[in-house]
Each structure stands twice: as structure tokens, then as C-alpha cells.
């Protein structure tokens, strides 16, 4: 995969500018997913991503072939989205406050997991909705880890955060997501149960 990126970059630097479209096509979906996790708005995400791709194009002659293009490029995406978020409001700074979500994470050891088909479409949908609702800083780390399949070191490079913060934030993100999904499922099961009781009473 990275070799293909390098090959395209070499063609661009040799003067075949239009080959950049291939590079855009290779990375746009994953990058858009990251931008959406950060900005939570399709138009803003697309605009930021365009800016990021144009910036990357302008700086392409400074890219060192030893590094991974993905890591280098996602750092640009992350920076552009962070700037856009900071301009829009201060939500980003607030959301990355490490103490903010700590109270919500302590799942009781005895808490039971409800009976639900974890392969079902409903389950997938709940997970998706809850990822979309996550604070940008957590949603972005989850995306970098699971969608981009970046390791801790690469996430450090992309976000500029210390290694400890990255590990901590990823752990919190996973716990928060698990809690949110469990809560949603318990509510759904509860609603279904109460509905069943009412139906039985009516019968």
C-alpha cells in the first residue's frame, strides 16, 4: 500500500500532476471519515478535507519518502480540522479535557450484558450512532486506531499528543462507547419488555 503511494508521488514530482487524483481517490474515504468524526458536519468536513488535500499537494515536494504518506497526510487533515473546530467554537478544547468523561466510565463489575444479537444490523447501527455522538477528540482517536489501523506511535505523530495521552484517550473512548451502546440496548430491551407486559395484560 505505501509503495503505491510513493510510486504515485514520484510520478507527480516528475511532472505528472494529474496523478494526484489517484492519491486523492486512495485516501479520501478514510480521511473523510476522520474529518466527520472531528467536525460532525458533512459540509465542513468536506471543505476541510479539500483544504487538507490542496495543502498536501503544495507541500508534496517536501514529503520525505522514508515516512508513511498516510501518517504525514492525516497529520495535515487533523490540523486543518482542529483549526476549523477551534474557529467554530471552543468545543474541541473542552472535549479533550481528560477529567471530563472520567465519571462515566466506571462500569459496575456485576453489570450484566443484555441478550442481543451482537452481529445484527441494529447493533451495528447503534454503534455507528454512538461513535457519531462521541466528542471529537475521542471519535478521532477511535477512527485513527480502528479505521486507519494506526499504531500508538503513528497516532502520536498525527495528533501531536503525548503517548500516555493517546493510550489513555483510546482506552476512555472504547469504554465510553461500550457504556453508551450498553445503555442504548438496555433501554431498547426495557421498552420491548414493558411493551410485552402491556400486551399480555391486554390479552
Amino acid at each position: 500500500m505505501p509503495n503505491q503511494d510513493f510510486e504515485i508521488i514520484q510520478r507527480i514530482l516528475a511532472g505528472e500532476t494529474r496523478a494526484y487524483a489517484e492519491l486523492v481517490d486512495r485516501h479520501k474515504d478514510k480521511a473523510m471519515t476522520l474529518a466527520m468524526r472531528l467536525l460532525k458536519n458533512r459540509e465542513d468536513a468536506e471543505e476541510a478535507l479539500q483544504d487538507a488535500f490542496v495543502r498536501a499537494f503544495k507541500a508534496l515536494d517536501r514529503f520525505e519518502m522514508k515516512a508513511s504518506f498516510a501518517t504525514w497526510f492525516y497529520r495535515i487533515v487533523f490540523n486543518v480540522c482542529s483549526s476549523a473546530l477551534s474557529k467554530r467554537n471552543r468545543a474541541f478544547e473542552i472535549s479533550i479535557n481528560e477529567n471530563g468523561a472520567a465519571d462515566d466510565l466506571n462500569m459496575p463489575a456485576e453489570a450484566s450484558t443484555p441478550e442481543i444479537d451482537i452481529e445484527s444490523f441494529e447493533f451495528q447501527q447503534i454503534v455507528r450512532e454512538e461513535i457519531e455522538r462521541m466528542a471529537p477528540a475521542y471519535g478521532a482517536i477511535l477512527t485513527l486506531f480502528f479505521i486507519q489501523e494506526f499504531g500508538y506511535e503513528e497516532i502520536v505523530e498525527v495528533t501531536g499528543l503525548p503517548l500516555g495521552t493517546v493510550k489513555n484517550r483510546l482506552f476512555r473512548a472504547r469504554m465510553m462507547l461500550r457504556e453508551a451502546v450498553l445503555k442504548r440496548i438496555r433501554e431498547s430491551v426495557g421498552e420491548w419488555e414493558s411493551g410485552r407486559v402491556k400486551r399480555e395484560q391486554l390479552i
Binding site: K28, D29, M32, M36, A45, Q124, R128, L142, F146, I147
Partner: peptide
């Protein structure tokens, strides 16, 4: 999480 659909522009 790994199998969530990507968001295409």
C-alpha cells in the same frame, strides 16, 4: 467499530 462504513465525500 472496524466494520463501520466509511463516509465518502
Amino acid at each position: 467499530i472496524k466494520h463501520q462504513p466509511l463516509v465518502a465525500p
